[in-house]
Amino acid sequence: TEHYTFHTEEQAQRAAKKFKKQGLPVTIHEKNGKFTLQVN
């Protein structure tokens, strides 16, 4: 499991699309105004 932190939801969504294209499951969590992208 890898985690990436982004300052905006837009950045997180863009990164999520790249991972999803590779067939990886992705979840985004919002915490304290930051967005954490979790790749399993």
Results as ranks from 00 to 15, higher is better:
residue 1 T to V: 12
residue 1 T to H: 12
residue 1 T to I: 13
residue 1 T to W: 13
residue 1 T to Y: 13
residue 1 T to N: 10
residue 2 E to G: 12
residue 2 E to S: 13
residue 2 E to V: 14
residue 2 E to H: 15
residue 2 E to F: 15
residue 2 E to R: 15
residue 3 H to Y: 15
residue 3 H to F: 14
residue 3 H to A: 10
residue 3 H to G: 08
residue 3 H to L: 12
residue 3 H to R: 12
residue 3 H to C: 14
residue 3 H to V: 13
residue 4 Y to Q: 05
residue 4 Y to A: 04
residue 4 Y to F: 10
residue 4 Y to C: 08
residue 4 Y to I: 07
residue 4 Y to M: 08
residue 4 Y to L: 11
residue 5 T to L: 09
residue 5 T to S: 07
residue 5 T to N: 05
residue 5 T to V: 13
residue 5 T to Y: 11
residue 6 F to C: 06
residue 6 F to T: 02
residue 6 F to W: 04
residue 6 F to E: 00
residue 6 F to P: 00
residue 6 F to H: 02
residue 6 F to A: 01
residue 7 H to V: 09
residue 7 H to W: 09
residue 7 H to E: 15
residue 7 H to K: 10
residue 7 H to M: 11
residue 8 T to K: 04
residue 8 T to F: 04
residue 8 T to R: 03
residue 8 T to A: 03
residue 8 T to I: 03
residue 8 T to W: 03
residue 8 T to V: 03
residue 9 E to S: 08
residue 9 E to Q: 11
residue 9 E to F: 15
residue 9 E to T: 05
residue 9 E to N: 07
residue 9 E to A: 12
residue 9 E to R: 15
residue 10 E to W: 11
residue 10 E to N: 06
residue 10 E to R: 09
residue 10 E to G: 06
residue 10 E to M: 08
residue 10 E to Y: 08
residue 10 E to V: 08
residue 10 E to H: 07
residue 11 Q to E: 15
residue 11 Q to A: 14
residue 11 Q to R: 05
residue 11 Q to C: 06
residue 11 Q to L: 08
residue 11 Q to W: 04
residue 11 Q to G: 07
residue 11 Q to V: 04
residue 11 Q to N: 05
residue 12 A to P: 00
residue 12 A to F: 00
residue 13 Q to A: 07
residue 13 Q to G: 03
residue 13 Q to K: 13
residue 13 Q to S: 06
residue 13 Q to Y: 09
residue 13 Q to L: 14
residue 13 Q to W: 08
residue 14 R to S: 09
residue 14 R to T: 10
residue 14 R to W: 07
residue 14 R to G: 06
residue 14 R to V: 09
residue 15 A to D: 01
residue 15 A to L: 06
residue 15 A to P: 00
residue 15 A to T: 04
residue 16 A to P: 00
residue 16 A to K: 03
residue 16 A to Q: 04
residue 16 A to T: 02
residue 16 A to W: 05
residue 17 K to L: 14
residue 17 K to N: 12
residue 17 K to I: 13
residue 17 K to R: 11
residue 17 K to P: 00
residue 17 K to G: 06
residue 17 K to A: 14
residue 17 K to V: 10
residue 17 K to M: 14
residue 18 K to Y: 14
residue 18 K to H: 12
residue 18 K to T: 07
residue 19 F to R: 02
residue 19 F to N: 01
residue 19 F to M: 06
residue 19 F to Y: 08
residue 19 F to D: 01
residue 19 F to T: 00
residue 20 K to G: 06
residue 20 K to L: 14
residue 20 K to V: 12
residue 20 K to R: 14
residue 21 K to W: 07
residue 21 K to R: 09
residue 21 K to T: 09
residue 21 K to M: 13
residue 22 Q to R: 09
residue 22 Q to K: 10
residue 22 Q to H: 09
residue 22 Q to N: 07
residue 22 Q to W: 11
residue 22 Q to F: 10
residue 22 Q to C: 06
residue 22 Q to P: 02
residue 22 Q to A: 11
residue 23 G to I: 01
residue 23 G to C: 05
residue 23 G to E: 02
residue 23 G to V: 01
residue 23 G to D: 04
residue 23 G to L: 03
residue 24 L to C: 05
residue 24 L to S: 04
residue 24 L to Y: 11
residue 24 L to G: 02
residue 25 P to Q: 15
residue 25 P to T: 15
residue 25 P to A: 15
residue 25 P to G: 13
residue 25 P to E: 15
residue 25 P to K: 15
residue 25 P to R: 15
residue 26 V to R: 00
residue 26 V to I: 07
residue 26 V to N: 02
residue 26 V to Y: 08
residue 26 V to L: 03
residue 26 V to H: 03
residue 26 V to S: 04
residue 26 V to E: 00
residue 27 T to N: 05
residue 27 T to A: 07
residue 27 T to R: 06
residue 27 T to V: 10
residue 27 T to I: 09
residue 27 T to C: 08
residue 27 T to E: 10
residue 28 I to G: 00
residue 28 I to H: 01
residue 28 I to Q: 02
residue 28 I to D: 00
residue 28 I to R: 01
residue 29 H to Y: 14
residue 29 H to Q: 11
residue 29 H to P: 00
residue 30 E to R: 08
residue 30 E to F: 13
residue 30 E to A: 08
residue 30 E to Q: 09
residue 30 E to L: 09
residue 30 E to Y: 13
residue 30 E to N: 07
residue 31 K to R: 10
residue 31 K to Y: 12
residue 31 K to V: 14
residue 31 K to N: 12
residue 31 K to P: 00
residue 32 N to P: 01
residue 32 N to Y: 05
residue 32 N to F: 06
residue 32 N to A: 05
residue 32 N to L: 05
residue 32 N to C: 07
residue 32 N to E: 08
residue 33 G to V: 00
residue 33 G to R: 02
residue 33 G to C: 04
residue 33 G to T: 01
residue 33 G to Q: 03
residue 33 G to N: 04
residue 33 G to E: 03
residue 33 G to L: 02
residue 34 K to G: 06
residue 34 K to L: 13
residue 34 K to D: 05
residue 34 K to P: 00
residue 34 K to T: 10
residue 34 K to H: 09
residue 34 K to F: 11
residue 34 K to Q: 09
residue 34 K to I: 14
residue 34 K to V: 14
residue 35 F to M: 02
residue 35 F to D: 01
residue 35 F to H: 03
residue 35 F to R: 01
residue 35 F to K: 01
residue 36 T to R: 05
residue 36 T to L: 13
residue 36 T to P: 02
residue 37 L to W: 01
residue 37 L to V: 13
residue 37 L to K: 00
residue 37 L to Y: 02
residue 38 Q to N: 07
residue 38 Q to F: 13
residue 38 Q to S: 12
residue 38 Q to I: 15
residue 39 V to F: 12
residue 39 V to P: 03
residue 39 V to R: 01
residue 39 V to I: 12
residue 39 V to W: 07
residue 39 V to A: 04
residue 39 V to N: 02
residue 39 V to T: 04
residue 39 V to Y: 05
residue 39 V to K: 01
residue 40 N to M: 11
residue 40 N to D: 11
residue 40 N to T: 12
residue 40 N to L: 13
residue 40 N to Y: 13
residue 40 N to F: 13
residue 40 N to A: 11
residue 40 N to P: 07
residue 40 N to K: 08
